[in-house]
């Protein structure tokens, strides 16, 4: 299984920042059963990291691994398009069924190094 690693750049603690993080976690959780890494970077506190990856817009998620790097700008409000843009695998069949059965009752293993 290829490891997934993301860095999410947000600007301060805004609604948009938390929406982006929640959307990304939900998406990754449902599609990356093998786990993933996510680092959330507040550009106000750590502008050097934004400089390093030449990020302009916030939120921006950078898929660091697997290579090549992929970027998506925005709060990821459209999960299907976001999954496609980030090159995430399709949702496992059983997850989809479970979801349909009990919406909201989500159990996903997450392994992320923040």
């Amino acid at each position: 299984m290829t490891g997934y690693s993301f860095r999410l750049f947000v600007a301060g603690e805004s609604e948009r920042s938390s929406a982006a993080e929640a959307n990304l976690r939900a998406l990754a959780g449902s599609r990356l059963s093998g786990g993933y890494e996510l680092e959330v970077v507040d550009v106000v506190a750590r502008p050097g990291l934004a400089e390093e990856l030449r990020v302009l817009a916030t939120p921006t998620v950078v898929r660091l691994l697997p290579l090549p790097q992929v970027r998506v700008i925005g709060d990821l409000s459209d999960p299907l398009r976001a999954a496609f843009a980030l090159g995430l695998p399709d949702e496992p069949q059983e997850v989809r069924e479970k979801k349909e059965e009990a919406d909201g009752d989500r159990h996903h293993k997450e392994a992320h190094g923040d």
Binding site: F9, V10, A11, G12, R16, A19, A20, N23, V43, V44, P47, A50, V55, L56, A57, T58, P59, T60, V72, I73, G74, D75, L76, S77, D78, R81, A82, A85
Partner: peptide, 8 residues
């Protein structure tokens, strides 16, 4: 995808 600003 979705809304954004130039915060970075």
């Amino acid at each position: 995808i979705g809304s954004y600003d130039f915060g970075a």
